[in-house]
């Protein structure tokens, strides 16, 4: 059975709950944490690879806990032709996937750090950040 990639987004209130433990224990899922950005008392994001028979059940449990769950069939790309290197996305990207190199002030995008939170999509004034399915 092939693993399923999902993105979780949760508010500061849930970041201390042992949700991963529950997924393993109660839903018998094999979990590979692809990316995680969790800080106490802050909003967090996580990308997981799930394998098992009870994936749907596990995802429903997460939703009941108030976690936003989305299948990760998407990836974020930067349209280099549109990007003006303004830099306004760099103070908003939660993982530092969009970052600025000083003193040249050039903006770089590191797709490996991106957790597909999609914040940059509506922040970028020229809409250079795009979702690729």
């Amino acid at each position: 059975m092939s693993p399923k990639k999902i993105v979780l987004r949760f508010g500061p209130d849930i970041s201390e709950e042992p949700i991963i433990y529950r997924l393993v224990k109660d839903y018998d899922l094999l979990i590979n944490i692809v990316k995680a950005n969790v800080n106490p008392q802050k909003e967090g994001t996580m990308v997981l690879d799930l394998t098992g028979d009870q994936i749907e059940g596990g995802m429903n449990y997460l939703r009941e806990k108030g976690v936003q769950v989305q299948a990760l069939s998407q990836e974020i790309v930067r349209n280099e032709d549109r990007c003006t290197m303004c830099g306004v996305c760099t103070a908003i990207c939660p993982t530092g996937a969009l970052f600025m190199e000083r003193p040249a002030m050039e903006v770089y995008f590191d797709g490996d750090k991106c957790v597909v939170c999609q914040l940059c999509l509506k922040i970028c004034p020229v809409r250079a950040m795009e979702v690729r399915l």
Binding site: M85, C86, G87, V88, A91, I92, M100, A104
Partner: peptide
């Protein structure tokens, strides 16, 4: 963060 691109 700037709205005005320095490199440009």
């Amino acid at each position: 963060a700037p709205l005005s691109g320095y490199p440009k």
